[in-house]
Amino acid sequence: MTAALARPVAAAAPATSRLGRIAWNWRHNPKLELWLAWYTILVFYNIFGIVFFVMTRSQPPPKAWWSLPRMVQWFADNEWGLLVGFGIIFAMGAFATASTALITYSIRRMSVSPAFAYTYLILYSLAAVPGMLLTCIALVVGAMRLDRDPALMGSLYDMGFIAFSGTMGIFLVGSVIWAVAILLDTNRIFPRWFGYFNICNALTEVVVATCVIEKSGPFAWDGIISFYVNMVVFGIYTGVFITLLRKMIEREDFTAGSPLSQHRRPHAI
């Protein structure tokens, strides 16, 4: 964090200790808010990965074809992981908005209508509810009382994983909006190839829709096509966009048109 924050923008940073540089940047760096948002994204995705893949074992998703007793067993096997892991997500789930905010900011820097940014903002704000929170709620409710009727446990299990995988359509449309904005942009906030990568990501996410039809095989929510191929593309895509957002912040010069151009930190001028 210090390497990024230590970039003097408007005044020479005092060449003292690391702590001193952090303190100086905290007060003077005009990009402070952007860097805070970027590091929040980094922290959030890491915690998200640990919670979903390690603590709760909800990713990669368990089998869609399991019988009711096996589903109940899955809740029992992962009881504490689900309760503690998703408790962490409930506590810090709002950090997910940093990513949406920074991407919305990037679209506002482009030479396109602000409608793109606002549409993206609304779409992703809505998408996190079924795509993340509903999954967490359903699975936590299941883990909370393991002695519930197995039929109810089965419903919570299905709801949790369908909410996670089956609602990709909203993310897909968001990805297309970002792609079109990048391709139309003449300010070159992002390279054109990343616009095409967005289209590619959107086309891959369509595949997940089959998980509401199939309960087993390559097209179920745990299937090799619906989940694994899609996850590889999405993983690369996420890594790329986080890196490009970092480059955008490094290049940011707060020229006219920047949403922050009117809000410079007074110490930086």
Partner: peptide, 18 residues
């Protein structure tokens, strides 16, 4: 566009292998 062609090609190649 070549990035899209490359990634689409790789993704479809994965589908074909499956």
């Amino acid at each position: 566009m070549w990035v899209l062609v490359m990634i689409e090609g790789l993704t479809f190649a994965a589908y074909f292998v499956v």
